[in-house]
Design a protein around this nucleic acid. Structure first.
Lengths: 230, 230
DNA sequence: GTGACTTTGTGCATGCGTTCACATGAACCT
DNA sequence: AGGTTCATGTGAACGCATGCACAAAGTCAC
């Protein structure tokens, strides 16, 4: 499940405070979920606590880590060393949680050899060699959207089956490949949507009034010279 | 809905190719969703196309933009000018999609005055003044996890009701405040989970064999000297 | 103007996730 | 040793999103 990492992090904070056991209520509060959901999740993964007491922090932590596959470090290769790629390479949160950036790739030949976060940037053509060298690994796409699909194809061809995509593009990959998408503009747009609803401004100050289409009762903007409907 | 921005971007690619109308099938393909789902989403937001023809690209684009609230630029303020904060400030994808970074804040006094992406970094104490100056805006938390809750509280106190949180922490905010979370380690961990299941290595090379608890039939690791159960 | 075709909009069923509520089981106190 | 208390684990119901399949509606050709 997608909530296991959240539980794991919450358990980490309890461990930092030297808490030995936690109840599902406490842990759920720290993770921001319902306690019943948490219990069901944990029971589903086969782990269990002690009735009347709760969950042993260290034991549960180890079990979840193991379930996720964090008992070993996963190699991560980052493609596209722009602003975002560099920030990711320098981000310390990876290595502390079971991941290790092993290679930085960029299509721009001028950047090859440049050192970022202690790693030399390698030409994109090295991809298959790097992937073969490290075995199963995770590819991170931090390129512009225009290059994302091509990079994804190359990653798949190199044997990478897990991709984290930061480019604002929909990637087409085989079913055997997992793609997770992180899209900053989408997150912002969702926030803007809710923000707009909260500030109940029915009409933008620079916009047209709404009109109501008698046929459907649906809101339709008048167009404001937008070259409306025929 | 959370898919509207995806549709909007797909429509953008059609507009760039000077396509006048798209069918739900085409648009759904570009957005990576089912066509029925797309039609239902669009009908739910009140917009509509033309039966037998499809959707007029420019018109639908305008309507979705308007629905999301992108007819005006939303001010964005970024708190925490570390690696990630700088990358976000320099990221061009914001301004092109209805957002404008208006302020950079950092708690470190030594950074005040530093210029990043054309903006001077301001001390964190300026937050309420900045928020008051720009009206409804979106706050981005790019600080370490330890500072995230405090920053969130300050943002809320300053009147910010939409927060994009990059820090690996669960934020407690009033119900009236929307928080969206972007967590790189969680995404990587989810990928690692699936990657581990794909490479069906039942036992990690450095880990213990699984044993089966006769009481529940659930998988339980032997512990490998982990200081197992009493 | 009529017919055939294309595509939208939507009722309906299915499946999944979430949540409540309760029984099970373990520890602790007397 | 027995009862009490506490928290887990789970059965069952609810609600929601998804997807199919079809009718409504509009266009194009003749």
């Amino acid at each position: 499940m997608a909530r296991l990492p959240v539980y794991l992090r919450a358990l980490g904070t309890f461990a930092d405070r030297n808490v030995a056991t936690v109840s599902s209520e406490e842990l759920a509060g720290a993770a921001g979920v319902n306690s019943a959901k948490l219990r069901k999740d944990l029971s589903y993964l086969g782990s269990y606590g002690t009735r009347g007491v709760g969950y042993e922090v260290a034991y549960l932590r180890y079990q979840i880590s193991r379930q996720i596959g964090l008992t070993q470090d996963w190699p991560v290769l980052i493609v596209g060393i722009g602003n975002l790629g560099q920030a990711l390479a320098n981000y310390g949160g990876f290595v502390s949680r079971g991941f290790r950036v092993v290679a930085l790739l960029d299509a721009d030949p001028a950047r090859a050899g440049e050192v970022v976060a202690g790693l030399a940037v390698r030409p994109f053509a090295d991809l298959s060699a790097v992937a073969a060298e490290h075995g199963p690994c995770i590819g991170v796409i931090a390129t512009p959207a225009s290059a994302a699909q091509q990079v994804a194809g190359a990653l798949v061809a190199a044997g990478v089956r897990s991709i984290l995509n930061f480019a604002p593009a929909v990637l087409a990959v085989p079913d055997s490949v997992d793609v997770r998408k992180v899209d900053l503009s989408i997150e912002l747009q969702i926030l803007a949507y809710h923000e707009q609803r909260k500030t109940a401004r029915f009409v933008a100050l620079d916009g047209p009034d709404d009109v109501r289409d008698p046929r459907f009762g649906a809101e339709v903007p008048a167009g404001a010279g937008f070259g409306g409907r025929p």
